[in-house]
Amino acid sequence: MSATATATGAQILQAITRYTGADNPSAFLALNRGNHTFTLPRTDGVIVYRPAGRYLVQFGGPFAPEHTYTLLLDAFRAHARREGLGLVGVQLQHTDALAYARHGFTVNQIGASWALPLDDFTLRGTAFMQLRNKISRALRNDLVIQEAHRPEHSYEALRAVDAAWLGAKGPHTRELEFLVGEIGGSAQRHRRLFTGTIAGRTVAYLSYSPVYGTRQGWLHDLSRRVPGGSPGLMEALNAHAIEVFRREGTRWLHFGFTPFTGLDAGAELPGHSPAFQWLMHYLWEQGQALYPARTQLAYKHKWAARERIPEYVAFDGQASPAAFAHIFRACNAL
C-alpha cells in the first residue's frame, strides 16, 4: 500500500478525538503547523511525524481505530525503510508501547506527563502558602488577567512577549517546535488563551489545548512572560484559568510531558534497553544543560500535579543515541 496525500486538519482532529491515541494528553499537538502525516487509502487513522536528517520522528502512536492501528504502523515502518530512513517514536502511551514492543521495536520510558484532578482542588492550606503569596504579589502589581476570546487581536502583543522571552535566553536560543504548543493557525479556535497585562502592556500569556480521552480537560501548554517583570505572573494566570475551568466542570488540568522525569523501573517493558534506561536516569541527574527537567517538574509539583502518566520512546531496531538526538533535532532544539 502507498501513502495518501497529507491529512486535513479535520481528519487529524477526528483521529485524535475518536481513535486509539485519544488518551495521549498531548494529542492536540498533532495539529501543529509543520507536522507531516502518513495515511493509507480507504483506511481510517493517521500517523503524525517530522523528518529530521536521516530519521522520521513520530509523535505518539498511530491515531487510529484498533482494526487499522497495526496496519498503519506496519505500513509506516515499511515506508521509512524503503526511504532508507531510521524511525523513532516519542511520547508513546503505555498501550502504544506494548504494541510497538510486540512489533520488535526497542521501547523505553523516556519521561512522564503530569496531571492534576480539579474536582476538589483548592489553593487553601499551608502547602500552597508560597504559591498564594506569589499570586498576591502579581495582583498587587496591578496585573489584569483576561481570556482572549478573539486571540487574533492579541497576536502582535504576544509576539513582543515571545521576542523578549527568547532574547533573555541568549542569542543562540532556538524556539522549540513539534512537542510543544503554538499560537495561531486553523487550530487556534480549539485552544484557550489567557493574557496578563500591567498598565495596558501584555506581560505574560498562557495557552491551553484540549485533552480528550479518559482524562478530558485542558493542557497547560505554551506559557511566556517578559523577563524581569513582576514575580508570580504565570502562577496568577494559571490560578485564574483553573477557577474558570472548575466553574465549567473541567475535571483535569494536564501539565504535559517532561523528559527524564517520573522514571520507574516498574514501567519498563520486557526487551527495553538497559543502557538507554541508564542514560535517562543520568540525564535526570546531570542533564539540565540539555533540558531543564528539574525546573519543569518543580513547577508542576508546585500545583500538586502528581498524577504520573509514563511516556515512552520506541526505536526501530536497537536504542540509538543518534535517533534520540534526532528527536531534539525535530523539535528545533539542535
Rank of each mutant, 00 (worst) to 15 (best):
G229I: 00
T195Q: 04
Y205V: 09
P227G: 10
V203C: 14
T214R: 13
P231N: 00
P231D: 00
G229A: 02
L222S: 05
Y212L: 07
S230D: 01
A199G: 12
G213C: 03
R215F: 07
Q216H: 11
L219R: 06
S186T: 13
P227W: 08
D221I: 01
D221S: 14
I198D: 04
G217A: 13
T197F: 01
Q216K: 10
R191S: 10
G196V: 05
L193T: 07
R225W: 05
H220L: 07
Y212T: 13
Y208I: 03
L193S: 08
R224Y: 00
V226E: 06
R225F: 10
S186C: 09
A187Y: 10
R192E: 15
I198N: 05
S223L: 01
G229V: 01
R225P: 03
D221E: 14
S186W: 06
A187D: 14
R215D: 11
L193A: 08
T214I: 01
S209N: 11
A199T: 08
A204C: 14
Y205R: 02
F194Q: 08
Q216V: 08
L219D: 08
P231A: 00
A199K: 11
Y212S: 13
G200N: 12
L222A: 07
T202L: 15
G217Y: 12
G200W: 08
Q188N: 06
R215C: 10
T197N: 03
L193R: 03
H190L: 15
P210A: 14
A187G: 06
S207Y: 03
G229M: 01
R191W: 05
S207H: 02
P210V: 12
T195W: 03
P210E: 15
S209V: 02
A204Q: 06
V211D: 12
H190Y: 15
G232N: 02
G228L: 04
H190S: 13
R201Y: 05
R201M: 09
G217K: 13
F194M: 13
Q216E: 15
D221A: 12
G228M: 01
R189V: 07
P231Y: 00
G228I: 01
D221N: 11
L219C: 12
G229S: 03
R192D: 13
Y208E: 03
Q216A: 13
T197L: 02
R192G: 11
T202R: 08
T202D: 12
R201K: 15
S223Y: 00
W218P: 10
R189K: 11
F194D: 07
G228S: 02
R224F: 01
G232F: 00
G229Q: 02
P231E: 00
Q216S: 09
L219P: 06
R191T: 11
Y212C: 05
T197V: 07
P210T: 12
V211N: 07
L206R: 08
G229L: 01
Q188A: 09
P227R: 09
S223A: 09
G196Y: 02
S230P: 02
Q188F: 05
L193Y: 04
H220G: 07
D221G: 06
A199I: 02
R191I: 06
R224I: 00
R201P: 10
S209F: 04
A204E: 07
V203D: 11
A199F: 04
L206F: 09
G228T: 01
T197E: 06
G217E: 12
